[in-house]
C-alpha cells in the first residue's frame, strides 16, 4: 500500500518537476487563467475580426503598397531606435553601476521618466524641440538636416520611449558581475578591451538582448508619441498604427485588425528569432 502510494506520488512529481515549494496547482491554474484573460482572449478576438475579411481581403490589405510602405517605416525606425538604445543604454547602465558621482540617484531616476510620461506629451515636446524652429532643431536645420516630420523624427521619439528597457534589464546583471572578476582578468594580463569582450560582455549579453527586444517590440506598437513628430506623409513617414487608426475612422474594423495581425505576426517572428539566437548562443557557451 505504502509503496504504491509512494510510487504514484513519484510519477506525479515527475510530471510537474520536483519542487519543494507548495501551491503548484493553484499558482499554475491562476497563471493560465490570468494569461488567457489578459493576453489570449483579446488576441484571438483580433484574429476573429480579421477572419471576416477572408483570405482574399486579407491579402488585399497585405499587398497594398501603402500598407507595405508603412510596415517598412515602422519596422526600420523601430530597429534603428532599438539599436541606438542597446548601445547607449549599455553605456548608461555601465556608468550607473560602476562609478560613484554626485547626483547619481537623480540620473538613475531620470531613466524611468519616459515610462511615466504620457506618450502624447513626449511626442509634442520632442516635436517642439526638433522642429526646424525648435531649440535643437534649428541647429540641425542650419546644416540642412530635418529631424521633426521625417523618419528621423520617428527614430528620435522611439529612442526616447525605449530607453528604460535596456538600462533596466542590463543594470542588475551588471551589478552581479563583481569588480573583482574584472580585476582578476586584468591581473592575468587581459587588456581593457579584452576584459570587456571576454569577461563582461558574455555575462550581460542575454540581458542586453532582452532589453533590445523589449525596446524593439515597444517601438513597433507605439502610436501616441510618433504621430506628433512623424509628419505622417504617406509612403515616407506614415507608420502602420496610423493606418490602423485611419481604417477605424472609416469604420473598417476588419481592415484595421488585418494590419494589426500582420504586425503581430512579424513581431512574433522577430522576437522568436531573437530568443532562438539567445538560446543558441547560451548553448554554445556551455560547450
Amino acid at each position: 500500500m505504502a509503496r504504491s502510494a509512494a510510487s504514484s506520488t513519484r510519477v506525479f512529481t515527475r510530471f510537474r518537476a520536483h519542487s519543494v515549494l507548495p501551491g503548484f496547482n493553484l499558482a499554475m491554474g491562476f497563471t493560465l487563467l490570468y494569461l488567457s484573460l489578459i493576453v489570449l482572449v483579446p488576441l484571438s478576438a483580433l484574429f476573429f475580426k480579421t477572419a471576416n475579411l477572408g483570405w482574399g481581403g486579407f491579402f488585399a490589405v497585405l499587398g497594398n503598397d501603402r500598407v507595405l510602405a508603412s510596415l517598412r517605416v515602422t519596422f526600420l525606425t523601430s530597429l534603428a531606435a532599438a539599436v541606438i538604445n542597446a548601445f547607449f543604454g549599455l553605456i548608461v547602465a555601465w556608468v550607473l553601476v560602476r562609478y560613484r558621482f554626485p547626483g547619481k540617484r537623480i540620473i538613475d531616476a531620470l531613466v524611468d521618466l519616459p515610462f511615466a510620461l504620457p506618450t502624447a506629451v513626449a511626442g509634442i515636446t520632442l516635436a517642439t524641440l526638433y522642429a526646424p524652429h525648435g531649440w535643437i532643431g534649428q541647429y540641425f536645420a542650419a546644416q540642412g538636416i530635418k529631424i521633426a516630420y521625417t523618419p528621423l523624427g520617428i527614430v528620435v521619439a522611439l529612442t526616447f520611449i525605449g530607453l528604460p528597457f535596456v538600462v533596466r534589464t542590463v543594470q542588475p546583471v551588471l551589478e552581479d558581475v563583481e569588480a573583482g572578476v574584472e580585476e582578476a582578468a586584468a591581473s592575468l594580463g587581459a587588456g581593457r578591451w579584452d576584459v570587456f569582450r571576454r569577461v563582461i560582455f558574455p555575462a550581460i549579453y542575454p540581458a542586453l538582448l532582452t532589453g533590445f527586444s523589449l525596446a524593439f517590440a515597444r517601438a513597433i506598437g507605439e502610436y501616441g508619441s510618433v504621430i506628433f513628430i512623424a509628419g505622417n506623409m504617406p509612403y515616407i513617414s506614415e507608420i502602420s498604427p496610423l493606418l490602423i487608426v485611419s481604417k477605424l475612422e472609416q469604420y473598417d474594423y476588419a481592415g484595421a485588425t488585418a494590419i494589426a495581425v500582420i504586425m503581430l505576426l512579424i513581431s512574433f517572428a522577430l522576437l522568436f528569432s531573437i530568443n532562438a539566437l539567445q538560446w543558441w548562443t547560451s548553448r554554445r557557451g556551455v560547450r
Binding site: 509634442i124 516630420y149 504621430i227 506628433f228 509628419g231 505622417n232 506623409m233 504617406p234 496610423l242 487608426v245
Partner: peptide, 12 residues
C-alpha cells in the same frame, strides 16, 4: 508638408 491627424494638431 505635415499631415497632422487632427485639427488641433494642425493648429499646434
Amino acid at each position: 508638408p505635415v499631415l497632422e491627424t487632427g485639427g488641433r494638431g494642425a493648429t499646434t
